[in-house]
Amino acid sequence: MQDVVKSYKMGSGEVPVLRDVKLSIKTNEYVAVMGPSGSGKSTLMNILGCLDTPSSGRYYFGSQDVKGLSDNQLSEIRNKHIGFVFQSFNLLPRVTALQNVELPLIYLGAAPSARKKMAREVLERVGLGDRMTHRPSELSGGQKQRVAIARALVTKPSLILADEPTGNLDSKTGTEIMGLFNKLHEQGNTIILVTHEEYIAEYAKRIIRLRDGLIDRAALSKKGAWIQFLSKMESETSPEETSD
């Protein structure tokens, strides 16, 4: 896809979570969306991920205006063009890593043999070649997130949306996962990262700050301004693992 432009504007009557947000993200960009809780990060993420549609304003996914699309068409976009990585992994607990990764391909309509092959390849790419038949409960947090990333990648989407991908991980694992995202970016993927941790946002090439549903233009900062903060964060984060 060329010239991925997403502009988005929203004005809602009742409780405006996002107010007239204008934003465009280009192909192969690596963007972090930051902001305190309640700033509208999640809502923005949902709209970007075609899980939700704007109350008003327009969101173009590629050249496609999302507004006029049916539920089925949105599902198709999510399936083919967007890969989700969630804070809480959101893997299906009762099936193996391989089957979890295969899942989007099932809805894509791929043949079982092709499905398995593609899922295996992606799992190997995220370094889980030896964990394919494990169930999520048998995997560590980092491994689970790698499975989730593999699942996001398997349909070769044009956009990877990561919502607090390191939120449930210790900082060492988090760093590993972020390294993986860097690699994906180098391989040409478009990545949008939602986080409230500065050191995570630092991995991105561009940071968008949201405050009260608005993009905080003043805070559009340069990379490197937070290095001091980053080291502080690292020492503070306790290395505990959360299992889902």
Binding site: G49, L51, D71, N72, S75, E76, R78, N79, K80, F84, N90, L91, L92, L103, P104, Y107, L108, R151, T155
Partner: peptide, 16 residues
Amino acid sequence: IREIGIRRAIGAKKIH
């Protein structure tokens, strides 16, 4: 419900 959400997010249509 969670499973339904996951499936929908990764592209399952209502019919699925």
